[in-house]
Amino acid sequence: MKFGVFSMNSDEGLDPLELAREAEGLGLESLFVLDHSHVPVTRRTPFGAGNEKTVNISQRKDLSEGFEDAGGDMPRDFYRNREQFVTLAGVAAVTSTLRIGTGICVVTQRDPIWLAKQVATLDQLSRGRLVFGVGIGSPWNREELANHGTDYHTRMTLMAERMEAMQRIWTQERAEYHGRFVDFDPLYAWPKPVQQPRPPVLVGGDGPTVFDRVLAYGDGWMPGHHEDPGFFRERVAELQERAAAAGRGRMEITIFLAHLDSLDDYASAGVDRVVVNAPTGEERKYLKDIAKAMADH
């Protein structure tokens, strides 16, 4: 298995350029960073949940005291994260072998023409080291989506159209797309990605329809950790069978927010990469833990 590290990319944590240099020096394969543009003051859905309940952040304690996930509020890091692509560009500039990943990029919050250019530019400047993790947006960030003009209930169709439109921009000299949500006449857009036909696309999520999205526009699956060891064995087998039937070949499997004590379970399920969270303020300790686990496996 390949070993990577995930950073919340908080401005209160270890400088991401230092984190990247140290990760590369320890032999880790990759570094992934978060993507959230802001935290709405009033939200109807508590963090990590699917039910609606109004949460007014302005009525809570001073943010300088720090938030933990209690009573439905997001952890402090969500308020403090740096911009994803700017960070990864800096990381690419100070490393040479480390793969750089979006973990994940909320495509439903980004203009597809600009995003296609950002992805291609970063892949070019990193000399083909980008791993493009993508997602549709969770129930608990529907207000964040709405602030970007995205309807939570139609986000899956929007996501599919944006991914298809970007694929055309990356691979065609004159790209054109006409869909329900994405609509543009023929255009020129450079650069094109170094990795062709695109950087590897890892689709996040573990819901009942996630494999439809993986097979429609992905090259692999990137679910979060699951406590049941049998979950990954069953679902990975299902995905690989569906991919083979669709003529897609083998799909790459990455476990996001992986647990180091579950490495044997991941390996038996056919996992290719594990990405372990390095909590803000403890990045160096976790880097060493990941490097040790990598050496032992």
Rank of each mutant, 00 (worst) to 15 (best):
M1A: 04
D11I: 14
G13A: 11
L19T: 05
R21P: 08
A23N: 14
G25F: 09
L34E: 13
D35S: 14
V41P: 02
R44P: 12
A49N: 12
A49P: 00
G50N: 13
N51I: 00
K53M: 06
V55L: 15
D62P: 02
E65C: 02
F67D: 13
E68N: 14
E68A: 11
A70H: 08
A70M: 03
R76K: 05
D77M: 11
F78I: 02
F85C: 04
A92M: 04
R99Y: 03
T102H: 10
V107Q: 11
R110I: 02
A116G: 13
A120F: 03
L122S: 08
V131L: 14
G135Y: 12
G137D: 00
S138V: 11
E144A: 13
L145C: 12
A146N: 09
Y152W: 14
R155M: 06
L158P: 07
E161R: 01
A165F: 07
R168N: 11
Q172L: 04
F184N: 05
P199L: 05
V201C: 13
L202M: 15
F211H: 07
R213V: 00
D219E: 05
G224D: 02
H226L: 00
G230M: 04
E234I: 01
R235N: 10
A246R: 15
G247W: 09
M251F: 08
E252W: 00
E252S: 07
I255K: 01
L260Y: 08
L263W: 03
D265L: 01
Y266R: 00
S268I: 01
G270R: 06
V271T: 12
V275Q: 10
N277R: 13
P279V: 09
Y286M: 15
L287P: 11
I290Q: 08
M294V: 13
D296V: 11
